[in-house]
Write a protein that binds this DNA or RNA. Sequence first.
DNA 1: ATTACTAAATTCCGAGTAA
DNA 2: TTTACTCGGAATTTAGTAA
Lengths: 222, 222
Amino acid sequence: MSELNVFDKNFLLLLHLAKNCGLDRSCRLSTLKLSNEFGGSQQTISRKLRELEEAGLIERFPYSSGMELVITSLAKKYLKTYLNQIQRLFDEPELIGSIVGKVRSGLGEGAYYVSLSQYMKQFREKLGFTPFSGTLNLEVNEVEFQKILLNLTPVKIDGFKTRKRTFGSINCYRVKIKNYNRAVLMIPKRSVHKGNVVELIAPDVLRDELNLEDGDELKIDF
Amino acid sequence: MSELNVFDKNFLLLLHLAKNCGLDRSCRLSTLKLSNEFGGSQQTISRKLRELEEAGLIERFPYSSGMELVITSLAKKYLKTYLNQIQRLFDEPELIGSIVGKVRSGLGEGAYYVSLSQYMKQFREKLGFTPFSGTLNLEVNEVEFQKILLNLTPVKIDGFKTRKRTFGSINCYRVKIKNYNRAVLMIPKRSVHKGNVVELIAPDVLRDELNLEDGDELKIDF
DNA sequence: ATTACTAAATTCCGAGTAA
DNA sequence: TTTACTCGGAATTTAGTAA
């Protein structure tokens, strides 16, 4: 982390100072007081304050028993960018859309296809996990569902041929269900289902993980 | 800073990860990719990720060319507390009140009192600066002004006696004017002014620093 | 390709102390 | 009392590799 600037390196200390002084006022403190409050030795605080001052992030004015300290507008600007960065994380749920479906029991075809090694290998490679060889079937509103898919880029699992038959490609979409975020929705090019039934795979058994029974309503976030 | 926890120590890395992955999704990356993006060596990133994982701040799932990474709800909670801390800094201007006054030229009495060594010594000790031996006179609305003072704790400059006469104590209030935050408003116990005129001192010449002329309106933040 | 171990290089910290 | 310097030791980083 050699390229870290003084602000980044001392972010926590500066935050502590700002909490003490406010952003628009000066406050009086000493290196010893700070070392007790913030941690570290008096010497280390002394050095860090010198670094911060040299970088133009604080201003110090000696004072008979310590110093008067001011957070500069440069430091304020830095703090603001951090604020914005973290805020953005919480502001944007990065949710393209949600859809509610009903849990249905399948006939086990999904499980068969998923377990094929040619698919399995690609799941591991492209999704980052080995799926449980079974699927969760979900009945959804086809129109709403298609609308959401238009805004998403699928992870594509290639099809393959054997001597006996051809297996189509599968479009996969990462989804989040409650707090579980490793589920993947599969849309096979040639589906055995009508358009209103979708299948989910995951590294875990979703029925157990999410405590589901047939008929349960389930919200999926894309 | 030995008492820093894993989160604090790796706050910036975790923020970087969160920006990449989002708070509710997983993302795929490798230690090499991260070391290029974030800085530091592949080895250092590897170690830090292990630390973060051990502390329950991230979860990792091996993947053929790297790993799949998830920000845990614990890390989310930490990020949220930081967000709140920084937000509070910007939310609360810590402004008790403001008042607008008009710049007036004084007769130089203020300058005389300020320059007295018995006062000057205390200014240095209690305010943290050596004031310019002159004051800026400001005409204010007395009622509004008194209302604000009620909510403030003054820095008290003690009075003293000489053989010839007695000098009263002075209440001082730190104020902010535009971006200048080292000005101090003085309220002498026995003032030569009527209650609608106040005097300001500062380590710098306020008239020059703030580019002021008689009659100018000036906003003071407490 | 990866991740991660070991060991050497480097950085950082803090006790002692001067000013 | 302060702040800040020196310097030895601790902690961190990274190069070289193994797996």
